[in-house]
């Protein structure tokens, strides 16, 4: 069953918190992973792989660079869930 945007956001925030120690409520749709959350490319790869596992989706490397904000990632995961 596909998850709602809110559920994906909450799950993603949990992954980001686990990886970076950032408070989960700092992970909001308008936040840019690099500029606002200070997440480097290595951490981003870990977050992507953990998100793939958690949400049962596949996020090819070439698509990762388009995921600039948390909102981008939530939308991507939602549509990838089909």
């Amino acid at each position: 069953m596909a998850l709602s945007e809110q559920e994906i956001l909450a799950g993603l925030a949990e992954i980001v918190n686990e990886e970076t120690g950032l408070a989960a409520d700092a992970v909001q749709p308008d936040k840019n992973f690099t500029d606002d959350l200070d997440i480097d490319s290595l951490s981003m790869m870990t977050i992507v792989v953990n998100a793939e596992e958690k949400f049962g989706v596949r996020i090819p490397d070439e698509d990762v660079k388009n995921l600039q904000t948390v909102g981008d990632a939530v939308s991507y995961i939602q549509s990838a869930q089909g």
Partner: peptide, 14 residues
């Protein structure tokens, strides 16, 4: 162990 069980994509980037 992760490589053998889950494949290269799951190997932690660090």
């Amino acid at each position: 162990d992760v490589l053998k069980e889950k494949g290269p994509r799951r190997v932690f980037p660090l």
